[in-house]
Design a binder for these strands. Structure first.
Lengths: 257, 257
DNA sequence: AAGTGGTCTAGACCACTAC
DNA sequence: TAGTGGTCTAGACCACTTC
């Protein structure tokens, strides 16, 4: 008799709520529009605020919503496709002319253990750390640290070797550019990448205008010279707003939506 | 006098908790070991269970923990690196000999709107949908649907054209293999990939042994023939256990950890 | 100062697994 | 049946943005 379903699957409330909201977003809201606040939405749907928030969290994770403390919840634009280097074709060093990154900063630090392992250097050994950022449409979408062991670019002095002693304190950004220039002297033998889910550390979160712990896509790139790992880059992309694209050189047509 | 910090940054409890737990995992627990249950952990740290759960959720997101209803919370092994096709070198069709996937199933369905858009077919038009799954270490890590428009493989009958009428009902798996074989006849002109964060739909969640809404990495691959999109694959990887690797052909050394 | 989302609490009950 | 994690509630207070 067309009885639809005998409650065999008690779907969680927040899951159902998410579906309802998702459809409402498609049909009744425009991008950038601001939703009613959480307390009102919860009341309207007859659920506790925590339950409503569980649904909103999921929608934000999927890039449908954007929530900002003190402001409100808005309908997010479709995810932007960010090109993460064409894998076919020749590989290039970071900082090559015309790449999408801005060079920010430089320091000499001890590499994090995971990076030290990839670089095959001692955990204590200081390495160059070049910080870069990537903008798209006025928004910062990614933050990167490029780790370069001292012996990959022997011509560049480390802080410890008195870069500030001789010739005055050079600007961090200038030092960063020096490291990149030195890298370009090496012949890049190859590279490989991995992508995984992570949560933003406090500093990255601030840079990406998110709260600490926000979901991010972590792209780890290993740069090879003579079969050896000459540098490692750790790039952190906003998972809510980005779709990483590994486009073919041949197939650079646009993937809409 | 060594006063460390004057509460200028009131770190959230769950964030601090996450740090503490993370360090405890490194030093005091072995992979696979089962943690005390949530009620006890919450009591031990003097927080509400919801707060404790917020910390656990983050750690699970980062692949440090694995929680299973009715069982408990265990320490997760390091993420497995799953190779998502070497991008350099010749591209291959799915189902090529030696690939990591198992062919499961076949149906003729209307493509989801996002896929229809990529394929440039009408939303209503039925397309072949081949379902495949990928195992690693006894665990299913990914679930894929390959959408192939009827006119890419004209030799293969769609359900509507009476595949079941003539010659008896063929097995779904057999039909799936037929579609793949037909694909291999076409000359693959290129491909491109995108990676983004998503949440598992109910069916994928079941297959991946997760709850609905679990975070997944969605890999969208477009296969090109004569500059036209001849097929689209939507692959869903468990974000908690997988690290996607886009290895170079030259650089197939192992990325540990 | 008013209004927003973010954090936190202390409970309750449910769905699932294993014994 | 006992024990686990998953869902849900009704409230409180906090941090932040905006006016």
């Amino acid at each position: 008799m067309g009885t639809t379903q005998l409650e065999t699957v008690p779907e969680p409330k927040y899951w159902h709520l998410k579906t309802v909201l998702s459809e409402a977003l498609d049909s009744e809201f425009a991008v950038g529009e601001i939703l009613p606040n959480e307390r009102e939405l919860a009341a309207r749907f007859g659920v506790a605020r925590a339950t409503l928030r569980q649904a909103l969290e999921q929608l934000e994770l999927e890039g449908r919503l954007q929530r900002r403390r003190g402001v409100g919840t808005t309908v997010a634009p479709p995810r932007v496709g960010v090109d993460v280097g064409s894998e076919s074709g020749p590989h290039t060093w970071p900082g090559a002319p015309g790449d999408a990154w801005h060079t920010d900063d430089h320091a000499c630090v001890a590499a994090p253990s995971t990076v030290a392992q990839l670089l095959d250097v001692d955990t204590e050994a200081p390495v160059h750390a070049v910080r870069r950022s990537r903008m798209t449409g006025g928004q910062q979408v990614a933050s990167e640290i490029l780790y370069v062991p001292a012996d990959t670019v022997p011509a560049v002095p480390t802080d410890a070797e008195g870069a500030e002693g001789a010739g005055g304190t050079t600007h961090p950004t200038a030092r960063a550019r020096t490291v990149l220039r030195a890298l370009h002297q090496c012949e890049l033998g190859g590279q490989d990448r991995t992508v995984e889910l992570g949560s933003a550390r406090a500093d990255d979160a601030r840079r990406l205008d998110r709260l600490p712990g926000a979901p991010v896509l972590v792209v780890t790139t290993r740069y090879l010279v003579d079969g050896r790992t000459a540098a490692v880059s750790l790039a952190t992309y906003r998972a809510d707003t980005c779709r990483l694209s590994f486009s073919d050189g041949d197939a650079m047509s646009l993937m809409a939506s």
